[in-house]
């Protein structure tokens, strides 16, 4: 679910274009946008406090076989939330799970990991090397 929450609707649709068609679904709730109060911890590791709210869109759907899928994603993208909810439902079918993971989730996760790695590499390039000072000492 984290992978779908971090993906855009366009990214999910691009993966679905190469996958079998999603089964039809009915909307049970939403897609609707609301707020989640994000909490921090005092001192980073103490008791919780309310930091501020985050816009979140959620959706719940039911497939014809009765499977219910849920999705919550930060932001206001109703399409993303609905696609994520349908995918959550189809991923519950043990027979098809591996195929859906390979077609949609794993490529999205790989792209996200790539972006995270690139950011980590940029951060690493700004890590201060105190070599000069060490040799002077």
């Amino acid at each position: 679910m984290g992978v779908l929450a971090r993906a855009t609707a366009a990214e999910i649709l691009a993966r679905l274009a190469e996958a079998p068609a999603l089964p039809p679904h009915r909307r049970l709730r939403g897609p609707e946008t609301g707020l989640v109060m994000a909490r921090g911890r005092q001192g980073g590791d103490g008791a919780p406090f309310n930091l501020g709210e985050v816009a979140v869109t959620r959706c719940s759907v039911r497939l014809e076989d009765g499977t219910v899928g849920h999705a919550y994603a930060s932001g206001r993208d109703a399409r993303q939330a609905e696609l994520a909810a349908v995918l959550d439902a189809v991923l519950q079918d043990p027979a098809r799970r591996a195929a859906w993971l390979a077609a949609v989730i794993e490529p999205l996760a790989a792209a996200q990991a790539g972006r995270a790695a690139s950011q980590a590499a940029k951060a690493a390039a700004t890590r201060v090397q105190f070599l000069t000072m060490a040799t002077m000492r």
Binding site: L35, M37, A38, G40, R41, G44, Y72
Partner: peptide, 14 residues
């Protein structure tokens, strides 16, 4: 104008 869905687990800044 937006409904409150709930609260997050405390963010893990670590």
């Amino acid at each position: 104008t937006l409904p409150r869905f709930g609260a997050s687990l405390p963010l893990d800044t670590g």
